Computed example of a mutant assay.
Amino acid sequence: MDAQLPDVEAGKRFYGELFGWTFEDWFGPFTRALKDGEPVAALVRKTDGRLPTVWTVYFSTPDARALARRVQAAGGQVVQSPVPAAELGVTALVTDPDGAVFALWQPREHPGFGRRREPGAFAWAELYARDTEAANAFYGDLFHEALFGPEAEPDFGRAPVSDVFPAEMPPHFLVHFAVEDVPAALAEVTRLGGRVQAPPFETSYGTVAVVTDDQGASFALLRR
């Protein structure tokens, strides 16, 4: 996953203090975020101020071009066709039929997360959809093996937009970072200039709070 930010240096300060991340220059405009020396995310400077300030989740696939075609055939859209990211992999940006944006990643030298499901790392992605039945059909077909196969360990769920957000909020993915103490993490977010969008609430996968960073990118804190 990566965050598109107006100010990457400010992002490094915010997430470095919040999650204990360190950073290194990576591919092109991307800065890689590390937790205990292992990759957990990336930050990238927005090249166009009209683009949203957001976190984007990437789904791994052995063939980004084939999956992009399947997305399109199922009613989604290809926003950015698959392109190589040097020797790291192949990436594409797509939407589901409801308009929620996500990315595809065909790994080469960069397989993905070095750490996850632990404090300061990715723990869950929740799709907030307007039509949950349509989402079930679309993603259930697209990622059937990952969601339902014999070795499935999904870190992905879906809920109606209106469960947490105003009904007019566009469908979107919300990335969740694991924390040991949600109230303490909320206090730190506020101290660093972020704000609380939704105070702690209980879900089937843990206690969640929704926040924004000091540049407006939304994400969630999760205690499982």
Rank of each mutant, 00 (worst) to 15 (best):
Thr56Leu: 10
Phe156Met: 08
Leu221Glu: 00
Pro160Asp: 03
Gly76Phe: 01
Val210Cys: 01
Leu147Met: 07
Gly216Arg: 03
Gln4Arg: 13
Ala86Cys: 02
Ala121Pro: 15
Val57His: 10
Phe165Ala: 10
Phe165Glu: 10
Ala86Phe: 07
Val182Tyr: 07
Pro107Val: 15
Val8Gly: 05
Glu153Ile: 11
Leu5Arg: 07
Gly11Ala: 10
Arg115Ala: 15
Leu127Arg: 14
Arg117Leu: 15
Thr95Gln: 13
Pro6Cys: 08
Thr132Glu: 08
Gly193Pro: 01
Val94Ala: 06
Gly20Asp: 05
Gln4Pro: 03
Gly99Pro: 07
Arg116Gly: 07
Pro166Tyr: 06
Pro6Lys: 08
Ala185Lys: 01
Gly194Thr: 01
Gly149Arg: 14
Val54Thr: 11
Pro183Phe: 08
Ser162Gln: 14
Asp131Ile: 06
Ala85Ser: 13
Asp96Gln: 07
Arg191Glu: 00
Ala137Leu: 13
Pro111Phe: 14
Met169Ile: 02
Leu93Thr: 13
Pro97Ile: 08
Glu38His: 11
Leu127Trp: 13
Gln77Val: 03
Asp63Ile: 06
Thr56Arg: 05
Arg116Ala: 15
Gly112Leu: 12
Pro171Glu: 13
His110Glu: 13
Glu109Leu: 12
Leu5Met: 11
Asp181Thr: 05
Leu104His: 12
Met169Pro: 00
Arg130Gly: 09
Phe30Glu: 02
Trp105Leu: 14
Leu142Trp: 09
His110Asn: 14
Asp214Asn: 14
Glu151Trp: 04
Phe156Pro: 09
Thr31Glu: 04
Phe59Val: 05
Tyr205Phe: 13
Pro111Met: 12
Phe201Leu: 06
Ala217Thr: 02
Asp131Tyr: 08
Asp214Cys: 02
Arg69His: 12
Arg69Gly: 10
Phe59Asn: 10
Ala167Val: 10
Arg13Phe: 04
Arg117Phe: 06
Asp96Asn: 11
Gly20Met: 01
Leu104Pro: 14
Arg115Cys: 10
Ala10Phe: 03
Asp48Arg: 12
Val101Asn: 09
Ala146Pro: 02
Gly112Gln: 13
Glu180Arg: 10
Val78Glu: 03
Gly37Val: 05
Gln215Lys: 03
Asp7Asn: 15
Ser162Arg: 15
Gly194Arg: 00
Gly28Phe: 02
Ala135Arg: 05
Asp48Gly: 09
Arg45Met: 06
Phe30Tyr: 12
Leu192Tyr: 04
Glu17Leu: 00
Arg191Cys: 00
Gln80Ser: 08
Pro170Cys: 09
Gln215Phe: 04
Asp96Cys: 09
Tyr139Gly: 11
Trp26Ala: 08
Phe138Ala: 10
Asp155Gln: 15
Val189Tyr: 00
His110Gly: 15
Gln72Ser: 13
Leu93Phe: 11
Phe27Pro: 01
Gly20Val: 02
Thr91Leu: 15
His110Cys: 12
Glu153His: 11
Leu174Tyr: 08
Asp96Phe: 05
Leu174Thr: 15
Gly194Phe: 00
Pro52Leu: 09
Arg108His: 15
Gly75Ser: 04
Leu174Ile: 14
Arg130Cys: 11
Val208Gln: 01
Thr53Met: 07
Gly16Lys: 04
Ala220Cys: 03
Val182His: 07
Pro97Asp: 11
Asn136His: 11
Val90Pro: 05
Ala121Met: 09
Phe201Trp: 12
Asp48Trp: 07
Val79Gln: 10
Pro200Ile: 02
Lys46Gly: 13
Phe173Lys: 05
Phe148Trp: 12
